[in-house]
Amino acid sequence: MDFITGIFKTSLGRKYVMAITGAGLFGFVVMHMLGNLLVFAGPAAINEYAAKLHALGPLLWVARIGLLGMVGLHIWSAIKLTSENREARTVEYDAAAEPVDAHRRGDIVAKFAARTMIFSGLIIAAFAFYHLAHFTWKVPQINGAGMEDFESYYVADDFTTPLAEGKEGKNHADVFKMIVTGFKVPAVSVFYVVAVGLLCFHLSHGLSAMFQSLGIKNKNIAPWMDRFAVGASALIFLGYISIPVSVLAAFIKIG
């Protein structure tokens, strides 16, 4: 058994993979949220931010491939670990857990978020795919905004004046208009809020469990790690949903 098989072919190794890729994806979720929140600073701010990201060129592709790799490893280890877990107990208990000390039930029965990580995770993955099709690949058929073509949203070099005719790579994308048009559709916004809610539910367990998998949790700091997990999840939830809510409430609007 060498180092690589020790990581990818063992239970503990796969949990390391899970924790490290999870931490990386959490980093992305935070950065993506901070970037998105620039929408509150007006069209110029977020369009300029988007233009700067695009100007990174090859570096952007390094980041994209890195993210895709992390997503792939995270899902691969999740499916592997979950199928092993299923095989490890094929006969379930008949009785629901009712300890003689009834107040200990909460400690003995696994929390709902912990029991449903694979489901919340896979739904988030499906949402992420939809989200990419919505805003990155700009597929008009799925935006629900009456076949509005996000591909035609471009701004001039001042990042605010819309262009009637723009070209990918030549002009700057009007991200602000995409966000407003996209979230104006109530069904899209509701789906978004539900998906972000699931993501934060997933993080409320994952963010504290990753410390355990990496061996850096103990009883002294565990309460703080659990608080960090719940607190960070709540902040991320509020940060993300503030955008569709503001669009629907017409707090953020075009012009």
Partner: peptide, 28 residues
Amino acid sequence: GFGNCTVTGSCEAVCPKEISLDFIARMN
């Protein structure tokens, strides 16, 4: 053929010797 850890804490809660979950972190 044992399963993997999901860090639920159930094991620690039923352990008659109250072995701490900290030892799993130590094993990791």
